[in-house]
Write a protein that binds this DNA or RNA. Structure first.
Length: 460
DNA sequence: CGGCTTTGACCGGCGC
DNA sequence: GCGCCGGTCAAAGCCG
């Protein structure tokens, strides 16, 4: 019987810096430690007792019952030997006790090292996350600038075709123009609303821009999916604010606005297809101004990316579009034959992602419709033994089939890492995006990618 | 009682 | 200028 098999119903490790690592095990599974909370901080962590272990061990040896009670209080008790206090039941010998102490200390050292490794891992991931976020923002700013330059040229050439890069799609979770709720709309003209078409920017330097944006058209992303439900579940919270009968379609069109945050500008229209009532067309407009739940990030990033590409002019063909959309979005978990189309007849630039393609139906969950990423995907991540850096992630770290082969200690680390990751929604969102990107790259690599350079750019 | 849905009215864009 | 149409508002009603 090893030390870890000792009876330790609720063992708690208190590290030197106040971390508290509760260790529990499931019933009928005495040889496993199932949960090790390496990341949660104990508010009641005492500096006087930075590390303590209470272990009771029952051992049957040569017919004699032995009970070992170890009360290890490192650096706290004057009765400690090498920082440990022991109450060992007779007839356990001193040699046996010393031996068990040594094993215990070795285990503690091992846990400490693993703890340090994990914390270093998390800190590196977070640093990388911040770096990537900054990098994305910089790219978006430069992208917008170049788009504005391009637009000025377009406006000079043909003032009638003034298509400006809409502010809504500049960045996911980024507010780029004043957002107000319905009540504020009445008193604030800085709103892009049909009733406030003459909205003004605070800076007088924006006068030219206002003139151009007066004719600005907003981009939309339309998603076609088969669903019996009245609305596909995309992870966001919506409130219906209107319903109209649209021309040429006997099915009414419903209007929803996002209610996850006050003043969120995102709206969507839901309408059944006239030709096929099982097809639900959901049209999204705008970008959320609030953190999204994990279930919503895939959809939001996809629609945002699609709209950005649509408006930036980086999409020159449907194939190119498909490639872009399957590179780093929710669609990356689908085969790359999802059909997309651009509409020039719609009142706004609209991109349609058609998930009803018969060849892809087998991959699309049947109603109620859900998008691919969910929390139960994360435990299948095989954490590497070395520090994790998002930019270095590859598919081998996420091979679910290899997961069954990992050792129990790795599973314990997995549980701890999962707990830490799921604790931070922003971190989770970034991780999900990264995983989506990786899976997409992996699928294309397996299926034969046409544009490796683009993939490299995405990774960079 | 607060939040949501329903639904008729209203507004602005656009084509004729 | 007029009518059509898409989109939104807001009062009323519903629901948990």
């Amino acid at each position: 019987m090893s030390i870890m098999e000792a009876r330790c119903e609720n063992m708690v490790l208190n590290s030197f810096d106040g971390h508290k690592f509760p260790i529990t095990r499931h019933e009928n599974e005495s040889s496993k430690i199932d949960e090790m909370d390496f990341f949660s901080r104990s508010s009641s962590g005492s500096l006087k007792n930075p590390l303590s272990i209470d272990v009771k061990e029952e051992e049957q040896q040569d017919g004699a019952h032995q009970e070992l009670q170890l009360n290890l209080n490192v650096g706290s008790s004057p009765n400690t030997t090498n920082g440990a206090k022991m109450n060992v039941g007779s007839p356990c010998t001193n040699n046996q006790t010393t031996h068990k102490m040594a094993i215990l200390q070795a285990q503690l050292e091992k846990m400490k090292r693993e703890n340090e490794g994990l914390r270093s891992m998390v800190s590196q991931v977070k640093e990388r996350y911040v770096f990537l976020q900054k990098h994305i923002q910089e790219n978006i700013i430069s992208h917008e600038t170049s788009e504005n330059i391009k637009m000025n040229e377009v406006v000079k050439e043909d003032t009638k075709q003034s298509l400006l890069f809409p502010l809504e799609f500049n960045n996911l979770n980024q507010i780029t123009k004043p957002e107000v709720d319905n009540n504020m709309m009445k008193i604030d003209s800085n709103v892009d609303s049909p009733h406030n078409k003459d909205f003004k920017f605070n800076s007088p330097r924006d006068g030219d821009r206002v003139a151009v944006e007066a004719t600005m058209r907003r981009a939309r992303v339309s998603v076609r999916a088969r669903s019996e439900a009245s609305m596909i579940s995309d992870g966001c919270q919506w409130r219906k604010y209107g319903q109209k009968m649209a021309k040429g379609n006997p099915c009414p069109r419903a209007y929803y606005r996002c209610t996850m945050a006050v003043g969120c500008p995102v709206r969507k229209q839901v309408q059944r297809c006239a030709e096929d009532r099982t097809v639900l067309t959901t049209t999204y407009e705008g970008t959320h101004n609030h953190p999204l739940p994990q279930a919503a990030t895939a959809m939001a990033s996809t629609t945002s990316a699609a709209a950005s590409m649509l408006l930036s002019g980086s999409i020159s063909s449907s194939n190119n579009l498909n490639h872009h959309l399957t590179s780093g979005s929710m669609l990356s978990s689908y085969p790359p034959n999802i059909t997309t189309s651009l509409s020039s007849t719609a009142p706004f630039p609209t991109i349609t992602l058609d998930l009803t393609n018969p060849s892809t139906n087998q991959h699309i969950p049947q109603p109620p419709f859900h998008f691919p990423f969910s929390t139960n995907m994360l435990p299948n991540i095989n954490l590497p033994n070395r520090p994790l850096v998002l930019g270095q992630l590859s598919s081998q770290h996420f091979n679910a089939t290899k997961f069954a082969d990992v050792q129990s200690s790795e599973q314990e680390l997995m549980s701890a890492a999962t707990a830490a990751v799921t604790a931070d929604p922003n971190f989770m969102a970034a991780l999900v995006a990264a995983i989506g990107s990786i899976i997409g790259n992996d699928q294309r690599n397996n299926g034969g990618s046409k544009n490796e350079n683009d993939n490299d750019n995405m990774r960079n």
